[in-house]
Amino acid sequence: MAIRNPSVPATLWSGARTGAFHLVAGVLAVLFLFPLLWAVLNSLKSPTEANASPPTFLPSSLSLGNYETLGKYGAGIAAYTGNSLLVALVTVGGTVVFSVLAGYGFSRYEFRGKNLTFVTILAILMVPYATMLLPLYLLLGVLGLQDSLIGLGLVLVMFQLPFGVLIMRNAFDSIPRELEEAAFLDGAGALGALRHVSLRIVTPGVVTVGLFAFLASWNEFLAPLIFLNTGDKFTLPLMLVSVREGTFGQIDFGALQAGIVVAMVPCVALYLVLNRYYVTGLLNGALRG
């Protein structure tokens, strides 16, 4: 495309190229965004209109009817959202606390078994997680954590550990020790030095680890599918799939799309607000597709 026709003025040529760029880029952007926006639009149609064939483009009137239907579905959308939030809370909390402590320990101390422990934690990344769910299902049964949101959260913490520990260890490695030594001289203990001095500096790392843990737990499908049996304990993705199964062979497409919106809005919002941390995370190797 670099060959220019000498008879065409350069500005016109570059104008045409910019136009073509925006045309292609814009059409692609529409293709990528359309399914997401379409679900939002449909969820706000009245339940009858959302299930109409052929579909209407713009809603004839805005309605929260589909969300009301979801409120009455099974244990109610609020309960399923609560389940998802509980799992996310355990996953994010557990991952952050365990990763910060371990990252600090690996960065600052020497102890027996250090390398073995570190390599074992990283080995979690090498093992495809889908193959681990069967024995975990049995083990959670033995521990009394089968069909439990806490048990599910703990398993998700384990899968997030390698990423979290790696990020936090690197974060602590990049802080000069002198800061902590000063705190020790002032009489702080090991935990105190961690809390008052280093933790503030590694906040970006903590946000990154928490963000990835949240997205992973909120969106996880296979693990809750295997671990949770009781309908009332379903997380949002499982609940959506059962809405899709329909009642008496009739699928309520309006309610389904409202549910999809509830499931995707937190992820999109978090990404838009925290995308700086997201990119840092990817750079540091959050590369578990």
Binding site: L101, A102, G105, F106, R108, F111, K114, T117
Partner: peptide, 8 residues
């Protein structure tokens, strides 16, 4: 150090 790493 071992105590810090113990939970993980």
């Amino acid at each position: 150090g071992a105590l810090f790493v113990a939970p993980a």
